[in-house]
Design a protein around this nucleic acid. Sequence first.
DNA 1: TAGGATCCAGCTTTGGATCCTT
DNA 2: AAGGATCCAAAGCTGGATCCTA
Lengths: 221, 221
Amino acid sequence: MPSPPRDEAELVARARTLSGLAIDALASHWGVRVDGSPVSTKGKVGELLERALGATGGAAATRDFPGIGVELKTIPLDPRGTPRESTFVCAVSLLEAERAEWETSWVRAKLARVLWIPVGIGADGARRIGDPCLWSPSSEQERVLRDDFDEILGRIGATGIEGLSARVGRWMQLRPKAAHGRVRTRAPGADGGLIETVPRGFYLRARFTGAILRDPRALPP
Amino acid sequence: MPSPPRDEAELVARARTLSGLAIDALASHWGVRVDGSPVSTKGKVGELLERALGATGGAAATRDFPGIGVELKTIPLDPRGTPRESTFVCAVSLLEAERAEWETSWVRAKLARVLWIPVGIGADGARRIGDPCLWSPSSEQERVLRDDFDEILGRIGATGIEGLSARVGRWMQLRPKAAHGRVRTRAPGADGGLIETVPRGFYLRARFTGAILRDPRALPP
DNA sequence: TAGGATCCAGCTTTGGATCCTT
DNA sequence: AAGGATCCAAAGCTGGATCCTA
């Protein structure tokens, strides 16, 4: 198990040495199976890269590399280099939604510094690690993310969580997270009591992550 | 048959009196069948509204209302108010493509002043005429349309018509027009001779017409 | 043919549902 | 539950093919 990287430069240097490596090779090195049925290997590649880069593992970690304030995100690409999926950022606390502000939010902190690692798929079907991209949002990008955040949390306050569609948000959306979980939220209306619902999390739309992988300062539609 | 409207105000006033009217009612008034199989009634609604508004009919007309320089376009909407189709603007002369310029183009002249008439569909399945919208492109809108025009004609010049996909163009695209027609164009390359191909026309994408019906100065993606 | 357009199979995108490990 | 995510049916969009009338 590698020790945590001392600084960003060391983290990026390590990520660069992994570039081009087949996922299968990395998996067998770490004794992890990533060749099962697709549904049974969700999240495995992300965890594999955390290990290989010396991330602080486990559910207690607030960030992947707390010492240097960097979040690690893998992005699956299709053969043309386009993200195949949206990217989960973090869960949201529905009960604190009304008081939440972008400046002090967890989602902003997570997105402040991200090491994106694309995982491509070759003509032979083998998945390979791509070139890492250390990114912080430009001020224009952050403005849109903040607008999305405000609109999403504003709707939760106005109509309750059941009135919020995953369509809301240009680059960021709120969607169910976890099939079996239960959390409490407030029913719509001023007199709303507590009701139970499924947990939600912030996701970045694929068109946003695709654009920043091509150009870190891009402003997608 | 109404006489041609004297000016824009009269045209819009007439269009407003039609708003809310069922297409079936208008059709029976003019003795036109619009209840056949969908494939057999293409274009009927557009012709019906031309008649009802006193447009100069026939293939010889360069514009629907030449006296006042207005083009009439009907737009079919789905139950949510979104355009169901792209909108045909005019044919393109492939042989003159290399010399063509936006400023003097037919497509620009047609789009300079358009009376959009949405045709919605109610919960009962009946089609009804909506509120007319007299529109000219804003300078920002025209800039994008000109860019599309330049890129489309530029590609015809560079790669020939067969190298041009209907994907080119943000708001406007070039697509086949007429199933059986034949026109001549120049083969790609400096030494290109004349070859035959299917006629093409400019179309406005539904996301553009949908946006300007909601807000005439909107700048869709 | 020119002028009025829509059809519709196939591809892409969306977003609610779901899976594994600690 | 928290943290790593992907699955996949259904809705939406695309764009080549096509239809009618004068």
